[in-house]
Amino acid sequence: MAERVRVKTWMPPGHVRAPAYLRGKTGVIERALGAFGNPEQLAYGLPAEKQPLYRVRFSMAEVWGAGAEVSDDTLDAEIYGHWLERV
């Protein structure tokens, strides 16, 4: 059973790489990619902590609801660990 995660619904200012259209959406971890510097700090020349990065797979139905072209098509995005919560 793949691990289910939800993207946090934060709306902070700054160089954030978790796209707004995926916030609050639930998907499954497609693969773990390793640890990468947090772009929210890197972008400002600050010392960046390493964050685990995951490819998370969402169904189009989860992202777009009834407006999805085809419900079972999927959308994968890379999301840093601090933006994810287990569900």
């Binding site: 790489r17 990468f36 490819r55 085809v70 098509d73 999927t74 890379e78 999301i79």
Partner: peptide, 15 residues
């Protein structure tokens, strides 16, 4: 074809 699954990949970070 309708039965082909479309997988979109959004390059949001380091990949």
């Amino acid at each position: 074809p309708a039965q082909t699954r479309v997988r979109v990949h959004d390059s949001t970070a380091d990949m």
